Computed example of a mutant assay.
Amino acid sequence: MKARTLLAPLAWAIVSLALPAAAAENAQTFVNKAAAGGMFEVDSSKLAQERAKEQQVKDFAGKMIADHSAANETLKKLAAEQKLQVPAQLDATQKSDIEKLQNTTTGFDQPYVEMQRSAHADAVNLFQSYAKEGDNPSLKAFAAETLPTLKMHQDMIEKIAAADAGMPAVKSASTPKPPAPVPGANSFTESQAKNRIQDAGYTDISSLAKDGQGIWRGQAKKDGKSISVALDYQGNVFAGQQ
């Protein structure tokens, strides 16, 4: 009985020491990515309001500045309450994208739209994942509350892309799935393509490569079976495609 009494506090001490470190790391990672993403939205959209030609792109940029500025302020307050650090600058990729936009003298709209498509795909994936599995209750609630707005932004930018023949479009929820991958300019990065395929229920995704038609192709597993997979520029996932 005495041994059990001594061991119980010791075991709890070990657990209590381990848990905060893991939780803080996960929460901090979310804050880092969410804050940097929000800053990128605002900075790139300020450039768009100055340089974009199409009014719908300017209008979209204005909404991004308003919505993401508000979300950024909320995130800062939550992070401060949780004693987490908020990054003061963009990551290397985001800085590079901003520089590309700053150096664009003609045809600003398309690269901005493509960057917004990619950024919102990443943001929706980040917030959706943290809202479901996040380790910090306050930040988890923030992610869940912000997610619908991010999805609305994503739908807006996809419609803008679809309205311009020069900008490849991701299908909307109401668009029927085609029988085979649709060739076209594919703006998904390898990481985004992998996430899309995973969301469709596949695991162990490997050997992803974009072919000459803009279709990501690779190998994956589903129901314990290895199978070839494909992802087209609209976001459609296909199995058994060569």
Rank of each mutant, 00 (worst) to 15 (best):
L139K: 09
T175K: 05
A70C: 00
N125K: 12
D109K: 10
A209M: 03
A119N: 10
M167W: 10
L84I: 11
S69R: 02
S44V: 06
A200H: 05
A13Q: 09
E99K: 15
F142R: 08
N32G: 03
N236M: 01
K151P: 00
S187A: 03
K63Q: 04
G134W: 04
S226T: 04
K159R: 11
S206K: 14
A21V: 14
A230F: 01
H68Y: 14
A193N: 04
M115E: 07
Q85H: 09
E41F: 08
Y130L: 10
K100A: 14
G184V: 01
A92C: 04
Q234W: 03
V15K: 06
S138E: 01
K95V: 13
M167H: 10
L101D: 12
K46I: 01
Q102R: 05
L19C: 12
N236Y: 01
P181S: 09
Y202E: 03
K2A: 12
M152T: 08
A52P: 02
A144L: 08
D67P: 00
A24L: 04
A22G: 02
E133K: 07
K100C: 12
S16D: 15
S138F: 01
D109R: 11
D135P: 15
L47F: 11
E50C: 09
A144Q: 14
F108I: 09
R196P: 08
T5G: 10
Y233T: 06
D164C: 00
S118H: 12
A22D: 05
I197N: 05
N32F: 01
P178K: 06
K171Q: 11
A23T: 06
I197Q: 03
K171S: 14
A21G: 11
R196L: 14
S45R: 13
T146S: 07
A119W: 06
Q82F: 12
T146E: 02
N136M: 10
G201P: 06
A88S: 00
G166S: 02
V15N: 05
L150W: 00
N136V: 05
A173K: 14
A70G: 01
D199T: 15
E99L: 14
L47S: 10
A92L: 08
F188K: 10
Q219D: 07
D199M: 15
P20Q: 09
A119P: 04
H68G: 05
Q102S: 02
F60W: 00
G38I: 07
D232Y: 13
S226R: 03
V237R: 07
K210G: 13
L208M: 15
D59T: 06
G166Q: 05
L139Y: 07
I227K: 13
L208E: 14
S226H: 03
S45G: 14
L139E: 07
Q241G: 05
V124S: 10
V42I: 09
T104W: 05
F238R: 13
D211W: 11
E50H: 12
T29L: 08
A8M: 13
D204Q: 15
K2R: 10
I98N: 06
S207K: 15
A143C: 13
A193E: 02
K171P: 09
D164V: 00
S45P: 12
S16P: 10
A169L: 11
D43T: 13
I14D: 03
V237A: 04
F60D: 00
G62V: 00
G212M: 06
N195Y: 11
D59E: 04
